[in-house]
Amino acid sequence: MRQRLALITAALSGSVVLLLLFFQPVAGAYLALVLNWAIIVASVALLVAIASLLVTHIRFIAVGRRGFIYSFVLITAFLATFLPGLFKGVEDPGYLGWISAIQKPLELSLLGLIALVMMSAAVKLFRVRGWSVLTVSFAISALLFLFLNLGLSDWSGNQIFSTLIDAFLRLPVIGARGLLIGVALGALLVGFRVLIGQESDNE
């Protein structure tokens, strides 16, 4: 019964939102109301998830679980971020500078790693996946755009090259459009399945 209740709730919620969207000119206020509810629920869910994370790591520290030192670091970092923001406000320049001084290098180093990873992947691509239409077309398009973005020469002076390059630059549109249609179809299918109750999250 509990599962059915969740299914019914999900299906009803989706149906109501769809109906309100279709009849938005007359039901705009109700649509805003429902969306506000969803926002509140999502926000509370975030708080619950954060609380769960903290409680879990506090428990790890309390029981002395292996690697609890990382839990200690997590709790400390959380408090060091949360408490100043709470007392000084999120618009305080000192607070913003301190946060960004930590966060920016961390994320940038992660992104920098991607370049190395991509390079390694380029070497292994054919060894792992072999020769196929997909891998060959992937390699050709990668080489083409890498070469175009080198910026070694200006091709705009030559009409033929310019037209050719324009055609190449439009190539991604074809693939992206096909992929987007496929993904949209999949999303539509998932949405329908949620609406008719075939997708249950809490089973």
Partner: peptide, 25 residues
């Protein structure tokens, strides 16, 4: 993943990846 750019990037890795709408099935 249903993210197309994610699919493209992950295709370069050695991991099996679901392309296009296969992810939704």
């Amino acid at each position: 993943t249903g993210d197309i750019s994610g699919q493209a990037a992950l295709f370069a890795s050695g991991a099996p990846v679901l392309l296009g709408e296969d992810y939704y099935l």
